[in-house]
Write a protein that binds this DNA or RNA. Structure first.
Length: 782
DNA sequence: GTAGGGTTAG
């Protein structure tokens, strides 16, 4: 469970000591100079004594600065290099040392400056030691065009034959996301070592080609190159990305067979792989064997817990690591803040923010992005905006966090405006907006946005398609549904459980159970929501037996039922008239499956009994409920009364709902319809008056039809369509041809106190008929 | 002299 941080816990009282790694110098050439100040002093003395003219001294000074490894010491080294006239005394070796130093600190521009300076000003020719450092510096800042030019120089100098230089090129291209260029270098190499293979494996893994990465690993083993721990880390993390446990185990088995040593990095990669693949017992096994965990392992555990939605576990782990004396770093805080966002835990969220601020971690974009997300999810829009405004490096994730927050707040208008104006957007931005529109029932707008995406040449992924499929399902647009399915197949979009489930629902809502079940059958894995979607397909068809069979199959595959699956199952029984089975399932919910019935399940039972005409039993059942029946339940009871023409029980319901204050008007409309059907117009008048007093207004029902990919919506008696005249003519023809084959309109369902002729007129302008007429005009013979 | 673990938004 979630733990809150006690104010006296270490997280709030963090020491600000220097990192131990940085304060211990291994400088052998200048053993007395451990700090930059000492070096500066020495430099001063050197200049006073005129010793700075000796190239060796300057070279040593710069090397010592590089070794200290702080931002300040690098700058000092750079100044010595740039401003001193003695630059000419610097050797190629010193230039290489400087480039190495800047590369290791991620200061790519500075490294490139030294490189250019040494060529242009100093007239040095770079050597085979220069390029690995330089390329590593370019990798860190993703300086692709610079790297490509450097590659040109390397080629001209014939240094591409050097193993180290070539390996550095592979790594450079991989880091810039151009693994195919790295592959070209790899293929041309005359000799390769384990680093060449490992760099390429890692390159594939980094551009979402983890499958290729793992097969390259096996290729390497086949070629007789023995992997080392670095290779293993790359190969295992590729398996983690694929969430392929079997493959991960296989790779690990190879590692043992080949006798590769196991270090903490490999152990951590294994731990991460097991957790990402959901094998918690294997992960536990590693941890039990390990005893003590290091910081990165704590971070691995926490980030995986966040990914699995186990936010409470994150805070428990945080507590443990602090008790064991570890100082949370930026990655720890990222997971912690993400966990607070999930839990809506503002108090830990706030103290985390304070910790981040005190330790200067907020300059890291990701942390600030997570804080914005956290405040937004805790409902603190102002706090989030403050962080947002103070950020100097707003990335696309920053903007996305903001629009996602606005969308959750229900502020679609502002979200849309920002979406349109943000400086950079990506697939997640589009998916956020499409998802938001579906949530807000703006289905056509969602599909329009998807079309706009296509126009801009942006391909959707499986998250996009989940949104689009459900929008399409709600619209019931069958042609669009088929198009969506083809789009997914054509673009090789992975049908995961979520998308598969959405597609099953989509086809089901579009009246295409065959395709719905085909998608279901093709799915690799089924979770409880996937099974529920399939059971809903049966429910729509009234196929209660099919639903029960699916449910039993689900149990056989040891998928735990939840409350939603019982709603689908009971609905299927209700529509299929399986009264006894429905009663049995309702009973078994709690007794066998441990799922306690909610009001919605009681509602299903009332519906089941009512539809079967067991109105008395339904009423008794309602009285036995542990909670008050709501307007939905009364509504289905009243609908049953109407179906079975039982005015007396309807009147009983009427008396019971007067003290209810239902938000929906449906109950009252239904009641008035029942009275109308029985010709009890005074009751109709009374119910209508009540509705008027409560300020209800019936929302007009509508029908829609999809013609050539466009949705046309009609309400009853609608004359607003541009092709209204043609629709009228078509309706006349329909009526004419219907009466020719002996159709007599049944006006009993037109429950208004008007004469028969008027009823007939209303009936023929029913919204469904208008939609059908429009469809006939525009599809037949075309 | 080249390669390696944990990272936020939908």
């Amino acid at each position: 469970m979630a733990t809150t941080l006690h104010p006296s816990s270490p997280i709030l009282l963090l020491p600000t000591t220097q990192n131990a790694k940085n304060s211990s110098s291994h400088n052998h050439s200048l053993p007395n100079c451990k700090t930059l100040n000492e070096l500066k002093q020495l430099h001063c003395n050197m200049m006073k004594k005129g010793l700075s003219h000796y190239p060796n001294n300057i070279n040593k000074l710069i090397a010592a600065c590089v070794q200290i490894g702080t931002h300040e010491s690098f700058n000092y080294a750079l100044n010595v290099f740039k401003e001193d006239e003695e630059t000419m005394f610097c050797s190629l070796y010193t230039c290489n040392t400087l480039i190495r130093g800047f590369a290791s600190s991620g200061l790519g521009q500075e490294a490139i400056f030294i490189y250019l300076h040494m060529i242009v000003v100093m007239g040095f020719l770079p050597d085979k030691f220069t390029f690995p450092f330089l390329l590593s510096a370019c990798s860190k800042i993703m300086a692709l065009s610079e790297g490509v030019q450097i590659h040109g120089v390397i080629f001209k100098m014939g240094l591409d034959k050097d193993l180290f230089v070539a390996n550095s090129l592979i790594h450079f291209y991989a880091e810039c996301g151009k693994v195919d260029l790295g592959r070209k270098v790899f293929d041309k190499m005359l000799e390769r070592n384990v680093v060449s293979w490992t760099s390429l494996i890692n390159g594939y893994s980094g551009v979402n080609m983890a499958k290729e990465a793992v097969s390259l690993f096996f290729e390497m083993v086949e070629a007789g190159v023995k992997p080392n721990p670095v290779t293993m880390v790359c190969a295992i993390s590729a398996c983690a990305k694929l969430k392929d446990l079997e493959l991960g185990r296989k790779v690990y088995a190879f590692m043992n067979k080949l006798g590769v040593e196991l270090n903490t990095l490999v152990v951590n990669a294994l731990l991460d792989m097991y957790m990402k693949c959901g094998d918690m017992s294997a992960a536990r096994g590693i941890l039990d064997e390990l005893g003590d965990k290091n910081l990165v392992m704590y971070n691995t555990i926490m980030s995986n817990c966040v990914q699995h939605g186990l936010a409470g576990e994150v805070l428990v782990t945080l507590d443990e690591m602090i008790r064991k004396g570890w100082r949370p770093d930026k990655v720890t805080m990222l997971s912690t803040i993400a966990a607070c966002a999930q839990l809506g835990d503002l108090s830990v969220g706030k103290s985390s923010h304070a910790y981040v601020f005190r330790n200067g971690l907020e300059s890291w974009d990701n942390i600030s992005n997570a804080i914005i997300d956290m405040y937004m999810k805790c409902g603190k829009r102002e706090a989030a905006c403050k962080v947002f405004d103070n950020m100097s490096n707003k990335t696309v994730v920053t903007w996305n966090s903001l629009i996602a927050g606005l969308v959750r707040d229900g502020d679609m208008e502002l979200a849309l405006r920002i979406f349109g104006e943000m400086p950079e957007s990506n697939l997640v931005s589009w998916n956020t907006m499409i998802g938001a529109m579906v949530q807000a029932s703006m289905f056509e707008e969602a599909i329009d946005l998807f079309r706009e995406m296509q126009n801009q040449g942006i391909k959707g992924d499986s998250v996009t398609m989940v949104g689009i499929a459900s929008a399409c399902g709600y619209l019931g647009a069958h042609d669009l549904a088929k198009w969506i399915y083809t789009y997914i197949e054509k673009n090789d979009i992975l049908i995961d459980i979520q998308l598969g489930t959405a597609l099953v629902d989509m086809f089901s809502r579009c009246g295409d159970p065959r395709n719905a079940m085909r998608v279901f059958g093709n799915m690799e894995k089924h979770d409880v929501s996937a099974w529920t979607a399939a059971i809903r397909v049966m429910a729509v068809e009234g196929n209660a037996k099919g639903a029960i069979d699916l449910f039993n199959e689900m149990l056989k595959q040891e998928v735990m039922p939840d409350d939603f699956v019982f709603v689908a199952l009971l609905t299927a029984c209700s529509h299929g008239g399986y009264v006894d089975q429905g009663r049995q399932i309702f009973w078994s919910m709690e007794k066998i499956h441990g799922v306690s019935p909610q009001i919605i399940h009681y509602g299903c039972m009332v519906d089941l009994l009512g539809r079967a005409g067991l109105l008395e039993e339904a009423l008794d059942f309602m009285k036995s409920m542990p909670m008050e029946p709501n307007d939905v339940i009364w509504g289905s009871f009243i609908a049953a009364c109407r179906k079975h023409k039982n005015v007396e029980l309807a009147r009983c319901a009427d008396e019971n709902i007067t003290h209810l204050d239902p938000e929906r008007v449906g109950v009252h409309v239904l009641l008035s319809n029942i009275y109308a059907a029985a010709g009890k117009w005074t009751d109709v008048a009374r119910v209508r008056l009540q509705m008027k007093e409560k300020g209800f207004q019936k929302v007009a029902g509508s029908s829609s039809i999809e013609v050539h990919g466009l949705i046309h919506e009609f309400t009853s008696g609608d004359e607003s369509h541009t092709e209204n005249t043609q629709i009228g003519l078509m309706l006349q023809e329909i009526n004419h041809r219907l009466s020719q084959v002996g159709y007599v309109p049944d006006t009993t369902n037109v429950l208004l106190d008007i004469d028969e002729k008027e009823k007939e007129h209303l009936l023929c302008r029913h919204s469904e008929k208008l939609a059908v007429a429009y469809g006939l005009i525009n599809t037949v013979g075309k």
